[in-house]
Design a protein around this nucleic acid. Structure first.
Length: 280
DNA sequence: TGGCGTGTTTTTTC
DNA sequence: TGAAAAAACACGCC
């Protein structure tokens, strides 16, 4: 679930808690989520200090002293939770606990164990293949329709829904925000990327930026699992236009929202506002 | 109770 | 090379 707005909200919530903190120890309860092996984490981390929190796409990056970095990807159900009460019950599926001065803790929790945590030197961060291959950040001011057009050049026969989920095309979009951006831009998810007009690509670039920034302002979308670093839900789920609204009236034209499987994922769209064929 | 849906990235297949 | 499908995982749901 955590897509760009959720990871950014987590980053912002944890930043005041973690910045400047020294790691005093760690508990590894499930080593399978760690890369490289757990021994390296135990040997290297104690004594290091957290200098800054960065985000790239759906990756959260903790910059540490001595040029080390902790990189997290939460995949679907991963959570990072800050607590200053070490006596608070440790939730099930907590795989990793970082300990800090004054007994504060950062807990990594992930029901489905898809999430990952890497310990790498800053200059070797590019060795995380998914991170190195990420496309442009759609919420940055230098993200333009021209850049999106160029990135879509090699995906001409892909369905636009699939192309936008490809993190090398644009970083940070997932199932929710792709559907919301396609709705806002008036583009049917089954259209091929190569069939989009320059005007449609422009509208899509604007819509992607807009739906992501709106969600960040609302603290992310909490549908099932997502909470920020202080266990707080977001508000964007109350503002979704089409996602998970099958059968409900389109907020623009009133036509019932439809649901369709595309590349194995549920996709939601308005069959009237999002036309299936390119304009003549 | 068992089989499906969930959603992201990596890997495999065509 | 690129598009699509499967695999990784655990749980809730009906």
């Amino acid at each position: 679930m955590p897509e760009l707005p959720e990871v950014e909200t987590i980053r912002r919530s944890l930043e005041p808690c973690l910045t400047g903190r020294q790691i005093t120890g760690l508990q590894i309860r499930h080593p399978g989520i760690l890369l490289p092996a757990a021994e390296a984490f135990a040997a290297i981390l104690p004594g290091l200090r957290i200098l800054a929190l960065q985000r790239r796409g759906k990756y959260l990056i903790l910059e540490l002293s001595e040029d080390w970095c902790l990189v997290f990807h939460l995949r679907m159900t991963g959570k990072l939770l800050w607590t200053e009460d070490p006596q608070s019950p440790v939730p099930p599926h907590t795989h990793l606990i970082f300990q800090f001065e004054n007994e504060a803790q950062l807990r990594f929790n992930d029901v489905r164990r898809f999430g990952r945590c890497w310990l790498v030197r800053r200059e070797e961060m590019e060795r995380i293949s998914g991170l190195a291959a990420l496309g442009p950040e759609p919420i940055r001011s230098d993200f333009t329709a021209e850049i999106l057009k160029e990135k879509l050049r090699h995906k001409k026969n892909s369905k636009i829904k699939c192309a936008l989920l490809d993190q090398t095309v644009v970083s940070g979009l997932g199932n929710i925000y792709v559907d919301e951006a396609l709705f806002e831009a008036g583009i049917h998810p089954l259209r091929t990327a190569g069939s989009l007009s320059p005007e449609e690509i422009h509208a899509l670039a604007e819509a992607a930026r807009h739906v992501l920034q709106q969600s960040i302002r609302r603290g992310g979308t909490s549908l099932r699992n997502y909470v920020d670093g202080l266990d707080r839900q977001g508000e964007n789920q109350y503002h979704l236009q089409v996602f998970r609204r099958e059968g409900e009236p389109c907020p623009v034209c009133g036509t019932p929202i439809r649901r369709m499987k595309i590349a194995g994922r549920s996709s939601f769209f308005c069959p009237r506002c999002q036309i299936a064929h390119p304009p003549c």
